[in-house]
Design a protein around this nucleic acid. Sequence first.
DNA 1: TTGAAAGCGCTAACAT
DNA 2: ATGTTAGCGCTTTCAA
Lengths: 333, 333
Amino acid sequence: MAATMADVARVAGVSKKTVSNYFNGYPYFKPETRARIEAAIDELGYQMNRAARSLRSGKTGRICLALPELAQPYFAQLAEAVVATAQRTGYEVIVEVTGGDRDHELEVLGGARTLDVDGMIFGSLSMRHDDVDADGLQVPLVFVGDRGVSERFDFVAVDSEEGVREATRYLLDQGRTRVVALGWEDSGDATSAAVRTRGYIRAHEESGVTIDPALCVGSPDWGMAGGDRALSALLETGATFDAVAGFNDAMALGALTALRRAGLAVPDDVAVVGFDNILQAEYSAPALTTVDAGLTWVAERAVATLLQRLVPGDGSETAIEVAPSRLVVRESA
Amino acid sequence: MAATMADVARVAGVSKKTVSNYFNGYPYFKPETRARIEAAIDELGYQMNRAARSLRSGKTGRICLALPELAQPYFAQLAEAVVATAQRTGYEVIVEVTGGDRDHELEVLGGARTLDVDGMIFGSLSMRHDDVDADGLQVPLVFVGDRGVSERFDFVAVDSEEGVREATRYLLDQGRTRVVALGWEDSGDATSAAVRTRGYIRAHEESGVTIDPALCVGSPDWGMAGGDRALSALLETGATFDAVAGFNDAMALGALTALRRAGLAVPDDVAVVGFDNILQAEYSAPALTTVDAGLTWVAERAVATLLQRLVPGDGSETAIEVAPSRLVVRESA
DNA sequence: TTGAAAGCGCTAACAT
DNA sequence: ATGTTAGCGCTTTCAA
């Protein structure tokens, strides 16, 4: 049987409460008391029972990170940064993969209590935020995603509209006029796709270039496979274009593959830009011009904001923070 | 205040135990009792307090997945598969990122109790397994890694020696004779690098090709950056070679970048193979010939083996399972 | 600066 | 097929 706090107290010749104080960072100890406690802990190899502490204190020391997927480099890199930041602050991270499935997302959202976490960070592509029941939440929640998709929660946002606008402008400013919108979605919805589409449109308006609807291709899958498929399909139609604005790096990377298969030179025949600046963007052939979306900054702010909410007396306003982003020019455009 | 089981019992007009039975899958219920309980749960929006359940039952319903990093596609894909499999079985996954740091690894290993998990899956590159204190473990543990690095724990292994041998043979059988060993480590240690190095050596022995020590390059970083750096450095020395055997896909992908920068054609001047078959291998330019290491299979077996150990009466032998692997030929070789 | 007692919400053991 | 009792190991009053 593993040692309990009572055992430690007995061996150290103090009360349970004193040992508890020790573990909770209580500062006032006779040096001798502290030494005796530490010796007892050592001798018994005592490790605290977290379930008991949770039950009593109502805190778990865990947060949940819910993501549509983990295999996508963007989410993997976000997750690594979140886990690293949380670890540094003494929190553990439960990772939930929702598959971008709305029902699963809502289930996770409503299940914080069963999940047994103090708070949640939610990175979502699929969920519309306006119909989330904010009052039904059992723990603090921080969203991570595209600026503009929500105003009602703590939100660490990537200014993807501005980023895609900037990337598209970079293409247009080169004199390219037929730019494929890879990820297009012209809905009024507050989705990542719709937000980024607006950036693409604004760039064209600014440059006075007319958008050809034939170059606006959506993709249900925002991974490399999806980008490849969408662009290959476009190529099949016989459409001509001199650039591709991928609404994320993975799709842009997929587009690179499709172009290579078609024998088109990048950037000579077709220039390509992405958005996110995932690690892989630097190692594609050619290396991908993209917009750095401040992944690490986002992760750190998300954790910091959440932990702030966990502080008992916290009454600060709902925070919307926007990550700094910047164009990263490489060979593909 | 959130509802407790006692509240549910009162509203349903039954005892706490009956409600508890309901949640624990007890099958014998009067239909009416079941309906009353469900109505009460609904009415109160009851969600069980997991901390209390854990404290009492000694089970947490959580496992820990410890990995050197998450941003590497191989680990990200492994993690996604582990999380998905665990979710399917009703377990949550706490992800720990060790940074491949031995001290951190040992800390995680010894901290299962404080971590509050029922078991652990440990994917490690850095840890030597022979000095892990098997008796000090507080929960069942399953290792995931290269075959041959451990015999003392439940182990779901990738036969990387055989895989690298096969990949290297594929190069040698083409008549290539100067094959770079990217990831080389000629230590007697049971590390991934050493194991894969043996595969490279065996392939050469079989083919009767002499290994040039100048082509054996190690890399502290097994990511794309590391592969790029190591191969670039080799190129600097003026070494000539007609192929590269990357001991994992990420390094092979980095090598592709280095070769392109040097103006070398793949596979005409230099053929490249990797190991793992991560998703990205299909989308590099050119697409990477590699060995599929059965990532998903590994994740599923690891979870299944761990859950088997969690079954109370389980007394089965330590299991060493080896994942099926197979060469995947693409354009790069 | 430390101690004693109560109780968090659940399940195990036993009873019926 | 359902109820009663006890207690898991901690933290939280309250007291000294």
